[in-house]
């Protein structure tokens, strides 16, 4: 069996990394309780065991299948999840526990969500004004127009209302908002959805711009290709769990994904083999005993079906949840 060597950082380096930590999520779970037929109650285990670490000036992509509860993940971190759901786990922001009170204060100021829907802007307010509301310094209008130019928008867009803007333009306005604000953490929910090839590249470039501004960006996406282009780290999300966190440097050096699901996702890309594994991911109503990927995994053994693998640390920010990872 292949054994990974742990990177032994010096104490000083470790401390530096710790200080630079922006957000840390551990054992996050989200369960929705709802009424089934008659009086029976049903539980949906949407997020089961989610882990994530993000530093200042870093882009982390969360990649997962559609319908796997990725958008709820953002809601859970921000504390805007549906009322009939229970969130459990630990979230730390800048090394301090994120309590309900603190979260309310940070939301919209320090932590900003770029929504998936392009109808999230106020339909009656001029676009520029909406960006302006997020700025703290004076001489707003000029500054907003400068930011518009930075993201590739015509400064005249300032006076338009959202219905006059295309979907691609609205996404750029969202980026402009993120740049205008003093937020340190940006959560972008499916920023590339429904864009054509050129616009996707443009969008990824703009996400990089946020990163250069020393902001942390969490990019939630189903598009592994886009994630690999822009992210420093990729967290693969499957059936409500983090199954793998991989550093892009590892992939750039020719390394492979370590978890069988991530590998299947990689092999399914049209340019890599277009291989479709059989069957779909377990539904949220199922209570899982073993590994969530055991039924689909080509390498699954008896152990995988009985025992749930834990997230193993490979280096300080790379992890994998598999007994036979990397084999």
């Amino acid at each position: 069996m292949h054994v990974y060597e742990l990177n032994h950082e010096t104490q000083e380096e470790l401390e530096k990394i710790q200080n630079n930590l922006l957000l840390e999520v551990k054992n996050l779970s989200l369960t929705i309780e709802r009424f089934g037929k008659g009086w029976t109650r049903e539980r949906l285990y949407v997020i089961r065991d989610f882990h994530l670490k993000i530093h200042h000036g870093e882009v982390v992509a969360i990649v997962g299948a559609s319908g796997s509860g990725k958008s709820l993940l953002a809601d859970a971190i921000l504390g805007i999840h549906p009322k009939n759901s229970i969130v459990d786990g630990m979230i730390k922001y800048e090394n301090e526990l994120l309590t309900e009170k603190r979260r309310k204060r940070l939301r919209g100021n320090d932590i900003l969500l770029i929504p998936q829907m392009t109808n999230a802007l106020d339909p009656l307010m001029k676009v520029g004004k909406q960006v302006k509301t997020l700025m703290k310094q004076n001489n707003h209008q000029k500054a907003v127009k400068q930011i518009f130019q930075k993201v590739g928008l015509d400064p005249d867009v300032y006076d338009q209302i959202p219905s006059a803007c295309s979907g691609g333009m609205i996404r750029k306005i969202f980026i402009a908002m993120a740049l205008a604000s003093e937020a340190k953490l940006i959560i972008a929910d499916e920023p590339t959805n429904g864009l054509d090839y050129e616009s996707i590249d443009e969008m990824l470039f703009q996400i990089k711009m946020l990163e250069k501004d020393n902001k942390g960006v969490i990019m939630i996406t189903h598009d592994l290709e886009a994630a690999m282009k822009v992210a420093d780290k990729i967290a693969v999300f499957y059936a409500g769990e983090t199954v793998e966190v991989v550093d892009k440097k590892h992939l750039k050096k020719g390394g492979k994904f370590r978890h069988p699901y991530s590998r299947a996702l990689w092999n399914a890309l049209p340019q890599n083999g277009f291989i479709a594994i059989d069957s779909t991911q377990p539904s949220a109503t199922e209570k899982l005993t073993g590994c969530s990927f055991a039924k689909q995994c080509p390498k699954a053994t008896k152990k995988c079906k009985i025992e749930k693998p834990l997230l193993k640390e490979i280096s300080h920010d790379e992890m994998v949840r598999c007994f036979y990872a990397g084999m």
Binding site: A65, L224, P270, I275
Partner: peptide, 14 residues
């Protein structure tokens, strides 16, 4: 299939 992940995309097209 543009809204779906790579595995779903490959399954549907096959």
């Amino acid at each position: 299939t543009s809204m779906f992940d790579a595995i779903t995309q490959a399954q549907i097209w096959h």
